[in-house]
Design a protein around this nucleic acid. Structure first.
Length: 430
RNA sequence: GGAGAGAUACUCAAGUGGUCGAAGAGGCGCCCCUGCUAAGGGUGUAGGGCGGGUAACUGUCGCGAGGGUUCAAAUCCCUCUCUCUCCGCCA
C-alpha cells in the first residue's frame, strides 16, 4: 500500500508507475481513489464540525446541570439529538467509502525504482551480472534426480506414499550435503555481520496480510485447521512479523538478520508441479537474510545483499547470473528485485530462482506499522529480504556443476569442513 | 486444556460519567556537581492518527478491537482478540 498523499499530490507519477508495470486495467483506480478521497474529506469536515458543536454543547449542558436550569438542558438535548442523527447519516456514508478506498489502495502497486528495466514479464528480465564459467563438460550430465539416486540419496516413491506428490526423502550423503550447505550458509552470514535467528514456523493471519499480497497468500500459504495460524512460506514472513507494531530505536538500524526455517508452499497454479525431482516442492529448508533499515539506506543494502549471494555461490563453485526483474515481473509490494539463477550444464542454460533479492521499501512496514523514531516524528522503516540458500534447489545446481565423469561429486573447499573434511563423495549404485 | 490477572501515549504508570491531550515518572533538551563510570541536583520540553490553514494556529478521533447506553464514555453494558502468571500435558 502506497501513501495516499502521493496520489493526492502526484497522481501522474502513480499512473506512470502502473503503466510501467503493464497493469493498465488499474489506471482507473487512481482517479477513483482521488474522487472517493475528495468525497471522504468533505464528509469528514462536515461531521467534524457537527462533533465540535456537540462537544461544545455537551460541556454547556454540564454547566447548566450544575445551575439546575433543567428546561434549558432539555432544549439543548433535543438539538443534539438532531445533530447526532446527521452525524450517524454521515458515518453511514463514510463507512463503505473508507473500505472502498482501502481496497483500491491495496491493488495499486508500489512505486518501482527508477532504474528497474521496463518489460512485460520475466522474458524481459535483464542480466546484470555473470559469474563463473558456464561450461558444458565432455560427458553428459544426468537429471538431478538420477544423480541423487546414484548416491541412494533420493526416495520419491516413499515420499509420495507417505505425504503425496512434491515431497521427498533425502538420504545419506545427499542429506548430509543438504544440511552442510545450510550450516555453511549460516556461518557465512554470521561472518558478514548478520545475527542468526530461528523464528516461529507458523504465523497469524494479521502477519500474513502484512507481508504479502492477497493473491500470493491464496497460492502459497497452508492454513492450520481451527487455528488462526498459517505455515510460513519463508522465514521472511515471521522475521518481518517480529517487528509488527513496534518502534525500533534509530541507532539500532540497520538490523541485519539471517534466519533458518523450513518453508511450506502450496504452489497452487504453478506449472510443472508434477515435474520430476525436487525443483518444485511443497516443503524445503532455507537460510534467509533480512535487512531493516532507514529509507535512505535501502538502495545500497539491496545491492549489498545480492552481492553477498553471488559471493556465496562463488564459494560453492556454482556459475550463476543475476537477473534484474523487469517492471512487469515485479510483485506489487516490491520496489526492486532480482533473481539469482544457476548454470545448468545439463540444460545448457541458467535456470530459475535459486534465490531472490527484494527491496520492499516501506510497503511491509506500512502494513505492519514498523517504525523508527526521528527528531521530527516517527517514520516507516524499509524492509529487504534475500535468499542465502535453499538447499533442495541448490543441490540441483551443486550436483550438476560438481559432478565428475566417474559419477563422483567434488566438495568445494568452503564446504569441506561441514562434510567432515571429505573432498569428494562417491556413488553407491552402479 | 483448567484457573486467575491484565491491555491507557516512545516506555512505565494514575485515572470509574462532564474541567481528560489524559496526573506522575522515565525518556528527551539545557545547566550544575562528581577528575572516569555508576549516580546526584536544577531547569525546560514534547507528546499518536485523520482533516482544515501559506502560517501562527485549529477541528476531530484516540485509552486492546468492534458494537451499545448517554446531550456527554478511558470510565457503564455486550461481544471478540491478545498478553501475562499459576496448574496440567509434552519434545
Amino acid at each position: 500500500m502506497i501513501d495516499i498523499n502521493l496520489i493526492r499530490t502526484d497522481s501522474n507519477r502513480v499512473k506512470e508507475n502502473i503503466r510501467k508495470k503493464f497493469q493498465h486495467e488499474k489506471l482507473g483506480c487512481v482517479d477513483k481513489v482521488l474522487e472517493l478521497d475528495k468525497r471522504q474529506r468533505e464528509l469528514k469536515i462536515e461531521a467534524d464540525n457537527l462533533r465540535a458543536s456537540r462537544n461544545k454543547v455537551s460541556s454547556q449542558i454540564g454547566l447548566l446541570m450544575k445551575q439546575k436550569k433543567l428546561e434549558d438542558v432539555e432544549k439543548l438535548k433535543l438539538e443534539m439529538k438532531k445533530n447526532n442523527e446527521r452525524i450517524l447519516e454521515i458515518d453511514k456514508e463514510l463507512e463503505p467509502l473508507a473500505d472502498e478506498i482501502r481496497n483500491l489502495m491495496m491493488t495499486i502497486p508500489n512505486i518501482i525504482d527508477d532504474d528497474v528495466p521496463i518489460g512485460k514479464d520475466d522474458s524481459e528480465n535483464v542480466q546484470r551480472l555473470k559469474v563463473g564459467r558456464a561450461e558444458v563438460p565432455q560427458f553428459e550430465i544426468p537429471h538431478h534426480a538420477d544423480i541423487m539416486e546414484s548416491f541412494a540419496g533420493l526416495d520419491l516413491d516413499s515420499a509420495r506414499r507417505c505425504s503425496g506428490n512434491a515431497f521427498y526423502y533425502l538420504v545419506g550423503d545427499i542429506a548430509l550435503l543438504h544440511s552442510a550447505i545450510l550450516t555453511y550458509a549460516r556461518n557465512f552470514m554470521v561472518e558478514k555481520g548478520f545475527t542468526y535467528c530461528i523464528p516461529p514456523f507458523m504465523i497469524r493471519k494479521e502477519v500474513v496480510d502484512g507481508v504479502m499480497s492477497f493473491s500470493e497468500m491464496e497460492n502459497m500459504m497452508y492454513k492450520i485447521e481451527n487455528e488462526n495460524l498459517y505455515l510460513i512460506g519463508t522465514s521472511e514472513h515471521s522475521m518481518i512479523g517480529r517487528f509488527k507494531d513496534t518502534i525500533v530505536k534509530e541507532d539500532s538500524l540497520p538490523i541485519l538478520l539471517t534466519s533458518y526455517s523450513p518453508c511450506f508452499r502450496k504452489e497452487v497454479g504453478a506449472h510443472g508441479l508434477e515435474e520430476r525431482g525436487i525443483y518444485r516442492v511443497h516443503q524445503f529448508e532455507k537460510q534467509e537474510m533480512i535487512v531493516i533499515c532507514k529509507p535512505e539506506d535501502s538502495h545500497d543494502w539491496y545491492n549489498k545483499m545480492w552481492q553477498i549471494s553471488s559471493e556465496f555461490f562463488k564459494t560453492l563453485d556454482i556459475p550463476h547470473e543475476i537477473m534484474e526483474c523487469c517492471s512487469g515481473d515485479l510483485a506489487d509490494l516490491k520496489v526492486k528485485s532480482c533473481d539469482i539463477n544457476a548454470w545448468s550444464p545439463r540444460q545448457k542454460k541458467y535456470f530459475g530462482e535459486l534465490g531472490s533479492c527484494s527491496n520492499l521499501s516501506d510497503a511491509q512496514a506500512r502494513r505492519l506499522a514498523i517504525r523508527y523514531k526521528t527528531n521530527n516524528g516517527t517514520k516507516f522503516v524499509h524492509t529487504l529480504n534475500n535468499t542465502v540458500v535453499a538447499p533442495p534447489r541448490m543441490l540441483i545446481a551443486f550436483l550438476e556443476n560438481n559432478l565428475q565423469k566417474d559419477g563422483s561429486v567434488l566438495i568445494p573447499k568452503a564446504l569441506q569442513p561441514y562434510m567432515n573434511g571429505r573432498t569428494k563423495i562417491f556413488p553407491k549404485v552402479k
